[in-house]
Simulated assay, not measured.
Amino acid sequence: MGTVVLVVVVLAIIGGILYLVKSAGDTKRRELEDAKSEARRWVERLGGQVMSLNGTDTASRQAMADASERFTAAGSQMEQAQTKEQARQVTQTAMEGLYYVRAARVAMDMDPGPELPDLTGQSRAGSVSEERDVTVEGHEYAASPKPGSRTPHYYPGGVVAGRPVPQGWYSEPWWKPALVAGAWGLGSFLLFDAMFSGMHGYSGDAMGSAYADGYQDGIDAGDGGGDGGGFDDGGGFDSGGFDAGSDGFDAGGFDMGGFDF
């Protein structure tokens, strides 16, 4: 009798474990499908804008090119998404693209459309609130709250490699090498300090974070012999992904096909 009871108890425990495992698997599948459905909605919304809207000047054309890149990246990410976290990254990428669409519409004096949810780190990064023209290590940079022929590159704002980059318009996409490498080069704090120090809309906490990171970069470089991915002696970013002599970013170094940014 005791043996029978023991067998029944063991079978009940095994059955309970199998039920819990199946329930957990079903929950994960539902969460993934829900996340993919939400992501698909944003990707389709972005695709409609990319297909129907064409830029009319340098700033709007550049913004739409960036939106198109995000659309391509989101589509590739969707094909690879196997977890709800990856599906949510698809949503984030598509939202970034829609921010570029809004920027293009603003550049063309059009209604920007409905407000979008905040991107990750966007509120922390703040926004460019005034015109800035700076020279760092012999290279000229400009930032503006508005699009223009001198500032055709838009960034929606967010944290790049641990540092906040404000929403605004810039003379060149100087943040993209850090997006690719996942780290800022030596001397990058000089650019942050010159470009954003004292600017309303860019928090002191953000600048302090950039300073702390830059200080640590210097320590790490001293231990490791330096990092070839930072500013070069000629005054611009080196050729490891960004060409300071052109208007944009070398697409060969910026992988839009996966979950790299």
Rank of each mutant, 00 (worst) to 15 (best):
V4Q: 11
L6N: 10
V9R: 13
L11W: 03
A12E: 00
A12H: 02
G15A: 06
I17Q: 10
L20E: 12
V21G: 06
K22W: 13
G25N: 12
K28S: 13
K28W: 11
K28D: 13
R29D: 11
R29C: 02
R29M: 07
R30W: 09
R30H: 13
E31L: 15
K36V: 10
R41K: 15
R41Y: 12
R41P: 05
W42H: 13
L46A: 01
G48A: 10
V50K: 01
N54H: 13
N54M: 14
G55V: 11
T56D: 06
Q62C: 05
M64H: 03
A65P: 03
D66W: 12
D66G: 02
A67G: 04
A67I: 07
T72F: 12
A73C: 11
Q77M: 15
Q80R: 14
A81C: 10
K84Q: 12
V90L: 01
A94I: 01
G97I: 06
L98P: 05
R102N: 09
A104P: 03
R105I: 08
M110H: 01
P114F: 03
E115L: 08
D118Y: 08
G121F: 01
R124N: 11
A125T: 04
G126C: 00
S127R: 15
S129P: 04
V134I: 09
V134S: 08
V134P: 10
T135V: 15
G138F: 02
G138E: 02
H139I: 00
E140Q: 11
A142F: 08
A143N: 07
S144D: 09
P145V: 11
P145S: 00
P145R: 08
P145T: 06
K146S: 14
S149Q: 11
R150G: 07
Y155P: 05
Y155N: 09
G157L: 07
G157R: 05
A161N: 00
Q167T: 11
G168H: 01
S171I: 04
S171G: 15
W175K: 06
W175T: 04
K176Y: 11
P177W: 00
P177R: 02
A178T: 06
A181L: 10
G182H: 06
A183P: 04
A183E: 13
W184D: 00
G187H: 06
S188F: 14
F192S: 04
S197F: 09
S197W: 07
H200P: 09
G201I: 02
S203P: 01
G204Y: 04
G208A: 11
A210R: 01
Y211D: 09
Y215V: 14
Q216G: 00
D220Y: 04
A221I: 00
G222H: 04
G229T: 13
F231S: 05
D233T: 03
G234W: 05
G235S: 00
G235F: 01
G235C: 00
D238Q: 05
S239E: 11
G241N: 01
F242T: 04
A244P: 14
D260T: 15
